[in-house]
Design a protein around this nucleic acid. Sequence first.
DNA 1: TCGATGCGTTGCGAAGGATGCAACAGTCAT
DNA 2: ATGACTGTTGCATCCTTCGCAACGCATCGA
Lengths: 253, 253
Amino acid sequence: MSQTVDRALSILPLLAQGPADLGQVADRLGVHKSTALRLLRTLHEHGLVYRQQDQRYRLGARLFALAQEAVENLDIREIAHPHLAALNERIGHTIHLAVYEEGEVLYIDKVESRYPVRMYSRIGKPVAITVAAVAKLLLADLPEPERRALAGKLDYPPYTPRSTPNATAFLKELATVREQGWATDLGGHEESINCVGAPIRGADGRVVAAMSVSAPNVVVTAEELLSLLPQVRRTADAISREYSGTSPSKDSA
Amino acid sequence: MSQTVDRALSILPLLAQGPADLGQVADRLGVHKSTALRLLRTLHEHGLVYRQQDQRYRLGARLFALAQEAVENLDIREIAHPHLAALNERIGHTIHLAVYEEGEVLYIDKVESRYPVRMYSRIGKPVAITVAAVAKLLLADLPEPERRALAGKLDYPPYTPRSTPNATAFLKELATVREQGWATDLGGHEESINCVGAPIRGADGRVVAAMSVSAPNVVVTAEELLSLLPQVRRTADAISREYSGTSPSKDSA
DNA sequence: TCGATGCGTTGCGAAGGATGCAACAGTCAT
DNA sequence: ATGACTGTTGCATCCTTCGCAACGCATCGA
């Protein structure tokens, strides 16, 4: 809607592919060099773009700062984390927390068996949206038309023989997930990794996030992992209650 | 330099503090609601901003994607990682890799003892720039005026009794670090944590990155940690050589 | 040593786009 | 039902951005 801003923001994904010099940026944008220069300068002032010694531009540090702050301020994450940590304390496996946003699923928290570490390493990468347990949970709750549209647009990479093959199978799986209120990924992404997940719901019953427990099948069999389902669901429900209960009145300032 | 873009980008740090509605954004920017709306729409189209169900805006997922891609494309990181992993294999402690950028020091890689994990959790947060070994290494190599200016601007939080107290002490410490070619942080940030670090240099001899090994003093004493210094330096030098050697000719496309 | 080519940078007039206003629509609370 | 609030739209005005051309500067080759 705003041409100037639109152009400026188009520079970011362009630089995400790698550093580029002024001419390259101008060409890719289809604008004059001087225009590109002014846009880059503005981005630079805000720290979103950095100029390395060879004068080429690349993405800047402020970007990380923003992403960091953003994820820290997600109240679901804040509420969920203690619950995830407690569950992890008991069962010891890796636990993920994920949300859905505009056609993408992204992890916003993770608890590792050894120590609690917030690892955002998978953030931004195309999450295995067609197979991940958390993705199924989140997509299963989308309004019918949006769900159909999204399922049609997706790619269905055959990570393993057990991966979801196509939109039809995926929609069917989502229906199952919606019915039963939990989801699995049994070797659909990596042959040896199994997951079980449960949805976290807001006050209106809509799924606002999803959590899952993952473990390699050399450690626990799929059946053993499934036996943890009640605990996973209890945790998810506890988070749902707390999230629904406490009104989000942030009386700051 | 570009007013429109400047205003639009100013929205991002504002939203980083927490979700805000249209009116709040407009107020903080000092512009009319309709103007703020158009800017937010543009940000939204690029995925940098997300509109939650209560219509308030917050930072969007694309931001994570960009930050992720950006850090993945840092060639220093790519080159260094195998070396860091190898060193970690031998000595088992936590290893950090950091770079300097426009007054900030940020971690771009980390290897944990258990398994290699890229953890960007500290990115964006104010790194303990006045005490961290990697920070000293990076700042010690700055041009004199820039170093002085920066040292003057910094805060010197007394994390522990051993933290760097002020600019004078810091500049002196940096001089020492520059002389000896390595740095330590002995309980300057957290009482029980010690670090030793070494610089990674480009072809022109300038410090382009810094690495460090950290360990709690309940596991290894400061002396024991210091005895690892030769290995750390060898690793850093190996990275320097590889980084300088291979010309960065990315013959893509 | 000198000219040539390529890059980033600056100042300028023109015009295109962004701005703020005012009016509208929807929602919630009273 | 009525009021207040928030988000939204269309529009005329003016500011801001745009592309041009010329410049400074470095690198390269003769």
